[in-house]
Write a protein that binds this DNA or RNA. Sequence first.
DNA 1: CGTTGAGTTGAGCCGTCTCAATCCCGGTGG
DNA 2: CCACCGGGATTGAGACGGCTCAACTCAACG
Lengths: 225, 225
Amino acid sequence: MQTASIIEHPAARAAITGLLARSPRAAMAPRNCGRRYESGEEIFCEGDPAGAFYRVESGVVRTSKLLNDGRRQIDAFHLAGDIFGMERGWAHRFSAEAVGEATVVAIQRASLEDMAASEGALAQEVLASTMRLLERAQDHLVLLGRKTAMEKIATFLLDMAERSAAGDTVELPMSRSDIADHLGLTIETVCRTLTELQRREAIKLPARRRVIVLRNKALLRRMTM
Amino acid sequence: MQTASIIEHPAARAAITGLLARSPRAAMAPRNCGRRYESGEEIFCEGDPAGAFYRVESGVVRTSKLLNDGRRQIDAFHLAGDIFGMERGWAHRFSAEAVGEATVVAIQRASLEDMAASEGALAQEVLASTMRLLERAQDHLVLLGRKTAMEKIATFLLDMAERSAAGDTVELPMSRSDIADHLGLTIETVCRTLTELQRREAIKLPARRRVIVLRNKALLRRMTM
DNA sequence: CGTTGAGTTGAGCCGTCTCAATCCCGGTGG
DNA sequence: CCACCGGGATTGAGACGGCTCAACTCAACG
């Protein structure tokens, strides 16, 4: 979590304010008014005009893309503090929905040019968070292209544990179906693999279905490749 | 190819010059002196200090990551004009090698902060090309996570045709093994799928093994999903 | 409690992988 | 110009990981 987020950084705050003041849409974007989204509610949809980007205040957001026949790939889960929905062009290339209840602030965007040309601090933050998204996407490419179901699940669990940093008890806010579509698997394979991990005593699956206890992180880590 | 590359853009040139002038390493980075790499030669390696990023002048470069047991995922192929090797941290997270002979210019990097804080034009170009990499990575996530071998190959062929823009004859500079490691398949599956596409008269595989003729782009497009 | 939909488990199938044999382009030397 | 090689490319046969379809369980909620 060495994440310096755009909004938190004091210099960036000033920069954003400056940027917004210059933007014609500035009036529409009062700061600090995070909108609350219901579970499953759409934040934006593939193809929507990308007039803003977003920051997760609380809860989790998924960005995903649908193939014509309904196959879905979840690009990423965004946790509190994460930025998502930035675009090079003027349309969103993915859809975004709340996973469980979530609060999200919209940041009206000027053009990329304005962003980059504005105060260094903002440009730096935007660039850094774009690069972080890229890093995550690249790691995920390796997972999707070359890892087995077991390796995918192990990687995912450790990653979630690290990001939500709640000790060894991971609260998974998303459904099995979300996990499957993120890891390029089916629901059934996700279940079976979790069960198998429990059998191997790497994790524990309590009755509460969205909670997983990591029992043997070292073992899990060896499984991620 | 609506690619405005860092180096070509006149304003960016000035900005880079400015940036480099400020950088202690500036002397080491005479502009326009692209180094030539042999086929397969390593440009940088996973873990190397990331003191520079790169632009492909001619030829093709692959960036890839290796798992302990030898499984490989090729993140992307970079064609003439493409930028690669930019990092948020100070180490390269992937390896880069020339695919066939390639010429590459190194651009000594200052810190991200300097980059972003410098002339708007550079910041804008760096941000834009990072976002283009991100877009490509995201599209590739969908391919790796949810597409069949046939859909992967069809997508790949159309993408290469579009990027190298040589009409219907695609010169593939990379080996079957490279293609396989890019698409999350094996060499054999790549071969079989190409053969099947030829049987369906979507493509033609001439005797020259690194050339593929696209015979029915509409059909291919329908196959990409 | 009764209902409901997510989650789990089972059985069989299929797409892709593995292992192995063969092909043939592209280069070399005669 | 031709014969010969080496290594990438292709093809085949069988194995297997993950998928599909279907039944069942059970936590959550009214």
